[in-house]
Design a binder for these strands. Sequence first.
DNA 1: ATGAAAGCGCTAACAA
DNA 2: TTGTTAGCGCTTTCAT
Lengths: 342, 342
Amino acid sequence: MPVTIAEVARRAGVSKSTISRYLNGMYEHMGADTQERIAQVIAELDYRPNTLARGLKQKRTHTIGAIVANILNPFSTSIIRGIEDTLQEAGFNLILCNADDDPAKERDYVNMLVDKQIDGLIINTTGCNNPLIAQVNQQTPVVLIDRKAPEINIDTVTVDSACGVRQAIDHMVSVGHRRIAMVTLPYDHISPRLERVQAYQAALAGHRLPFREEWLIRTGGDETEVAAKLQALVGAGSHENSPTAIFCANNLITMSVVRALKKMRVAIPDKVSVLGFDDWDWAELIEPPITVVAQPVYAMGNKAAMMLIKRLKAPRMPKKPAIVMFQPELLKRKSCGEQEAE
Amino acid sequence: MPVTIAEVARRAGVSKSTISRYLNGMYEHMGADTQERIAQVIAELDYRPNTLARGLKQKRTHTIGAIVANILNPFSTSIIRGIEDTLQEAGFNLILCNADDDPAKERDYVNMLVDKQIDGLIINTTGCNNPLIAQVNQQTPVVLIDRKAPEINIDTVTVDSACGVRQAIDHMVSVGHRRIAMVTLPYDHISPRLERVQAYQAALAGHRLPFREEWLIRTGGDETEVAAKLQALVGAGSHENSPTAIFCANNLITMSVVRALKKMRVAIPDKVSVLGFDDWDWAELIEPPITVVAQPVYAMGNKAAMMLIKRLKAPRMPKKPAIVMFQPELLKRKSCGEQEAE
DNA sequence: ATGAAAGCGCTAACAA
DNA sequence: TTGTTAGCGCTTTCAT
């Protein structure tokens, strides 16, 4: 039976109101002796306020919810760390959820978080629950991270995919490639994926290289599927219908592609070069170390949390949503044949 | 202004109790028409019960807390997935926390979760908050995962480190190694780390190999520190005071060691072999693919969640704690010179 | 500088 | 089969 505010009040010989004031830092008109006595009783009893009761009354919980798309992706965990550190510093609690790239799970988590009366939400959304998210944003500040939702007006932190892709393709071209394929996950509702595909096409055009439908591979990411599609593309030996380089739209894809290529015993970069969007800790331990376009993921998590806190501190901020775009950076390693050409 | 149970009651022309009964599935003595009317009003108003109010009254929240040691470690995220799937199926919510291997953060998270009235806790503990955790376990079922706390009586799911280490050392010996070093993070309060060190010593003894203090490297995991220590150990070329193989106590260490060795241009396994405890997704993409002792992490997460649910379903279970031990499995790849010797 | 009392939204006896 | 009532533990006017 946990100790309640009433018990503390009784022992300190004051009323519940006074204890409550003490708990909420309203020391202004409070006797120094009273404060001391209360502090002592609280310590003695190891009293902890019931946050449910408090939340019920105050309608604020000092808790932020965060939903990531896929917790197995290092991209998500780095973002989480960025969010976590910032919130911790600001004194907010964090409830973490993993939507597992499943719109239904995402919906359930959003509802759960709203039910738990979170004060704010940071979400790397599947893009399939925009009406729900827009509705939440009416009562509770929401910040989108990584993925935009143009049709709803919400604070967003994202990365400049177009610029990143341009750097990637430029690099591949500079290293001698002319036949560049791209592998991506389905990009129906997910803005960066779509942007990257469009930027890929634009970058090819910029170099007067033709865009070939059959070199744009959409895959669910399943490894055998990726292997099969790559087999069809590059398995038959080099010729003018096979690409010499593969641009991977995110790190999960990059890993699948590298894995498939290794299994097929297609040498990287000798036979086919690989360049990935998004860096991760051990990309450089792979053989060959993978050249990537790195996103400042930790900083993005930071920023998202700060934007949320700003809204919370100024509840009547202009509703004009802020869109913050981070710049990605090309990290040249060895998977594009760099050593030969540069 | 969210809609409350009172509003639903008013519109449905019944009392709050009836709505409450409906919400809690007590349809037994309820008119079919009443049910229908309630269902309709709820749908119309998009009513969602206030979980804070409910939790305050019921003293249960249908929510489980989980604290992992380090969310950047694939070990943690796989466990999370195991926990998540099982809880989801059982209809429990999950609040995820990342202690970041910091006892103070861990303490804060435990307190936060208790304050939020979680029904149960799964924790991969730093080992520095045992009194607190034992205290929590009095009122709220706790399951320890991966790391044991022998001095407190709590359900635990862990892995048979001794057996795993034995397999690892046996394998290294069978492949021709006689001079085997070990690298570990500090193991003061963390049971598997200590067990692995002890098992390493025992396994050496089993093969009549001497244990050398200077070949047991304790490190904070910082990369430059690891590099410096490895440099001292194997940097000077092969001789009888330098080990021919390194056993890494977990995957973070494995990555640090591989990274350091690569930077030092020490060939694996030609110059030094590497074997790691704990597998992860892309261990086989590294060059050379790393031989590891794999833990059934997802299953461990599953099991921990199931044990917790069992306690919750049978609140008056014997307090006798269950210790479940999973068996690890050696995955032979290429980092121990396997191709030459087998 | 502090207390009394009402009420946040819900559930659970107890009545009817 | 349903309603009345009394809280859960806290905060917050309004008094004093």
